[in-house]
Design a protein around this nucleic acid. Structure first.
Lengths: 227, 227
DNA sequence: CACAACTCTTAACAAATTTTTACCTAGCCT
DNA sequence: AGGCTAGGTAAAAATTTGTTAAGAGTTGTG
C-alpha cells in the first residue's frame, strides 16, 4: 500500500517539483491549490501526511493546520514557511504541526523530514514485540528469528512476509493481498513469487516442511498462518 | 501517585501551553522561570521528569542539565532546543540529557518522548558512563574509545554513530534512521555515506573487520549493534 | 596566506545476497 | 483422467553491500 501525500500549495511550479520528487520516491501524491480545497481533500482523501504551505489564497496554511488537527489529530503535517515568518509560536504548540521546513529548502531535507515524521507516526508496533509459536521466536524490532534459541537467517522479504502472517493469523490471505501488503504496488512480481517465498519460510521454520503446520496452503485461495 | 513534571522555561506562553497539555494527560506540573530556580526546584520538589529549555536567563539549560545530572543522576531530562542550536544530535550525550526536542515541536511529539523516557526510566536500562564490549571501552562523556587500553582515534561522526548504536543495541536501525539521528536533517547525505562510516568503525573496532561481530549488517534493512 | 592533515561525502566497481522467473513434478478437485 | 494449482529446485536478474579512492571542505600550523 503506497503512502499518500497531500500537497497544499498555490504555486504550480512548486507543486510540480514536489510531485515529481515524491512520486520518484514511491509516494502517491494528491494536491490542492488553496487552503479551503486543501482542507477538503485532507478530509475526504485520507492522506497519510500533509505538506502545507503557510502563505496561500483563501485560507492560510496556519488555519488549515489548526482546523485539520482539530478534526484529524493523527494526520501528520509538515509546514512550508518562508524564512522569518512567525514560525516559532504558531507552528509548534498551538497549531500542532509535526515539523516545518523554511523556504527555500532542499528537497532532500524535506524528504528526510517526511520520512522521519511518517516513521514516528507509525512506530508503535501493533504486534507484540516478541511473538512465539512452536519452537520459533520472532522479534519484530531486531528483525530476529530464533528457533530453539538459534538464529534463523531470514531475508528482508521473508521476514516481512512472516511479520504480515503473524499480524493476520488464521485469516486466509490471497497471493494478491500478500503482494499488496508485503511487496507494495510499485513492483508487482508474479504471484508465483509468493509461493517461492512461502517455500523458503517453511524450510526455515517448519519442523517438517513437507507437512506444514503453521503456514498452511488453502488450495485455490492462498495461504493461512496458524500460530 | 501522580507523575510530577518540572518545566523550566522562561516564556510564560510556552509554560502555560505545556502545563495545560501535561495536566490534561494527568501529570502534576510545577514550573520555574529560569535556570537557577529550576535547579532549586528540581532538587527540592523531586520531580519525576524535567523539561528544560536551553535558552534561559541566569543559567543556561545546558548548565542546569549538567549540574542536575551530577546531583540527581536518575532524574530524566528532556531538553527543548531551537533548530540549529549546537546540540549534539546524539541526545545530549555529554550533558546526560535523556532526549531532546527541537523548537518548534508538536505537543504530540513532546508527549510521546516524555512517555518514552518515563518508561525507560522506570525499567532499568540506563546506558552506563563507560560501555564495554569485547576489548573495546567507550566513554560517552569524554568521547574516548579505547581498545585494550589504547586510545582509538574516532572522528566526530564515527563516535556519534557508535554512541547511537550503543544506545540502541540489538535493534535493527535503518540507514534513514541513522541519518536522522546522527546527521540531522539539514544536510542529508546519501544513505551510502552511512555504509562508509560503518566500514571505518569496523576497521577500527572489530577484531576481524571482514567478519563483523558487533556491528552487523541486516541485509535489506540496515545495521544492528550487538554488544 | 599557503600547506598539510584530516574528515566527510560521493562515485565506481566488485562481491555478496536476495528476488524473481522458469521449468518440471506432484497433488488436488470435479 | 484432465485441467489447474502448488511444491521444489536451479539459474538468471536485480538489488544491496563492501571496499577503495578521489574530491570538497575544514582545521591547524608555520
Amino acid at each position: 500500500m503506497k503512502t499518500k501525500i497531500l500537497i497544499v500549495e498555490d504555486e504550480p511550479a512548486m507543486v510540480a517539483g514536489l510531485r515529481d520528487n515524491f512520486e520518484y520516491e514511491g509516494y502517491d501524491v494528491i494536491s490542492a491549490e488553496d487552503g479551503v480545497s486543501g482542507l477538503d481533500k485532507a478530509m475526504s482523501d485520507n492522506p497519510d501526511l500533509v505538506v502545507l504551505d503557510v502563505m496561500m489564497p483563501r485560507m492560510s496554511g496556519l488555519d488549515v493546520c489548526k482546523q485539520l488537527k482539530a478534526k484529524r489529530p493523527s494526520v501528520p503535517i509538515i509546514m512550508l514557511t518562508a524564512r522569518g515568518q512567525e514560525i516559532d509560536k504558531v507552528v509548534g504548540l498551538e497549531l500542532g504541526a509535526d515539523d516545518y521546513v523554511t523556504k527555500p529548502f532542499s528537497i532532500r531535507e524535506l524528504m528526510a523530514r517526511v520520512k522521519a515524521v511518517l516513521r514516528r507516526a507509525s512506530s508503535p508496533a501493533p504486534v507484540p514485540e516478541v511473538y512465539k509459536f512452536s519452537d520459533v521466536e520472532v522479534n519484530i524490532r531486531s528483525n530476529e528469528v530464533r528457533r530453539n534459541g538459534d538464529l534463523v537467517d531470514l531475508s528482508a522479504k521473508e521476514f516481512a512476509l512472516l511479520a504480515y502472517f503473524i499480524a493476520h493469523p488464521v485469516e486466509t490471505l490471497s497471493r494478491d493481498r500478500l503482494l499488496d501488503a508485503v511487496w507494495g504496488y510499485e513492483n508487482y512480481p508474479t504471484t508465483r513469487t509468493v509461493d517461492t517465498h512461502i517455500v523458503h519460510l517453511r524450510q526455515k521454520l517448519e519442523p517438517n516442511p513437507e507437512e506444514p503446520r503453521f503456514i498452511l496452503t488453502v488450495h485455490g485461495s492462498g495461504y493461512k498462518f496458524v500460530g
